[in-house]
Design a protein around this nucleic acid. Structure first.
Lengths: 258, 258
DNA sequence: CGAGCGGTTGAGGCATGTCAAGAGTTGTGG
DNA sequence: CCACAACTCTTGACATGCCTCAACCGCTCG
């Protein structure tokens, strides 16, 4: 654990309000560690031993079943993930792997539970974090069930623009292959859909997204606060929900890469 | 508020551990009320004024966007719903309507928040409840993204049998139209799929389900603890997750019935 | 330089949605 | 108590969204 990491963690919504001595104690039991790209940090079904905090890099949360798997979310700094499993002391429902070289902090879940039993302020923080995670997941489910793939792609592109400050142009934060899985579709279909959307006010050039006609795109998307956020809390916190990636559906899965 | 309702509420996971005086105080501020079938209790986007507890009857949680809507869950007694919105004091993300004549308790969300700030045991209960809700939602999302419609139907049928105690035969707890929306498909498609499944070890006669070849059906479903439960807590609690109904996808929505 | 991988594009097929019609059931009002 | 209306469920015919497979390009990295 490097001392210079502590202030950043301390200011996370999850750790901001707790008593100083509890924070100190929790951090003392925790480990900071660097991981190379592509490392599987967590396998679904494993016991939840540690709450994970991403300090640098990025982590993909994904789920597997039968011979398929799909991206559920991508976690960016500084956020936590798999809070729910730690709280319930239950098996992870999702796996996690680093997308790039990343630096994480691992907080033992037993100590975590002990602290929130004794620190009301921390308990409130945990509750708020979890509620934000839950709501983000509900939004994802709504998007999956209520929108078709073209609408999901368009709303994603528009939302990213908004999150970046209503910019006209930005760079996709994840590779398209992963984005496709998050959005519940195949890479081929995403590619075609991005092409089709050029007549609807957004152009894609490689990894760069350019909003060419925001009004037109907005009309197509019909953005809905109850699906597309905000909930600024969820953006910063979440079981992994700066929420870039998301949720593919039945096909939209990919063959598991052994 | 009828006095005879209190013991049942008191034994809910959410209210079981809290201090007696806090429970009393909370119930004093709450209202119990009967509602006819088909009444819209909550409209998505409304401010979260009350935590709802279903004492009798059943309540559908559904989501709407554009001119579509879909069933997200069905809540049976004795369970609570929309806990997350109450905690965050944020707008409801889902709407709710009674499926039959129902008796509910409404707990003012402001009082709720106040109590869990002052009662650590209650705070822990809320955290556990929320974590269970979150995990249930993750399971739903996984099922939607990793399984096709036939697999979702088959796993649903098998799971209901298990929940009823591995019975060979049982009655569907909700109408098929709603089940279809929960599972992310159209009623027509569900009807056809149920027919097709007769060769896979399960027969449907009206509302009755008969497992004719459990081994065969199980082989088809490949049940997975990380999707199909248990998590017995989630069954009793949840933002409404005795989890009968569930989640339809893009089509799988239905035209909104004005 | 060549293997590997992400991305794109095209051809083709299957799963699933849409539309339409009819039987059975339930609830309501005359 | 019956008749009609409304609704669910089912089935068939048809349309289409999305997936699959395959080929190819371009980039990255060993």
């Amino acid at each position: 654990m490097r001392q210079e990491d502590l202030p950043e963690i301390r200011q996370l919504p999850l750790f901001r309000a707790m008593a100083h001595e509890n924070f100190e104690a929790l951090m003392e039991k925790s480990y900071a560690q660097n991981f190379p790209a592509g490392l599987e940090l967590i396998r679904q079904g494993d016991p939840a031993d540690f709450l994970h905090v991403v300090l640098e890099g990025s982590v993909e949360l994904f789920a597997s079943w039968s011979d398929r798997d799909c991206t559920m979310a991508v976690v960016h700094p500084v956020s936590t993930f798999i809070l729910a499993a730690c709280i319930k002391d239950a098996p992870y429902l999702m796996s996690a792997r680093t997308l790039e070289r990343s630096r994480l902090i691992l907080v033992p879940s037993g100590d975590l539970r002990q602290v929130f039993r004794g620190d009301p302020d921390f308990a409130v923080s945990v509750i708020n974090e979890l509620a934000a995670c839950y709501r983000t997941m509900v939004r994802n489910a709504k998007s999956l069930k209520l929108r078709n793939s073209r609408e999901r792609v368009a709303s994603y592109l528009l939302r990213q623009s908004r999150l970046a400050g209503d910019v006209v142009s930005y760079i996709l934060p994840v590779e398209k292959r992963l984005l496709a899985s998050y959005l519940g579709m195949t890479p081929e279909n995403l590619s075609r859909t991005l092409r089709m959307l050029e007549k609807d006010g957004v152009k894609i050039d490689g990894m760069r997204v350019i909003i060419t006609d925001r009004a037109k795109l907005t009309a197509l998307v019909q953005p809905d606060l109850l699906i597309d956020g905000p909930d600024p809390d969820a953006a910063s916190a979440g079981i992994g929900l700066p929420m870039i990636g998301g949720i593919p559906r039945s096909p939209g899965t990919r063959r598991r890469q052994a």
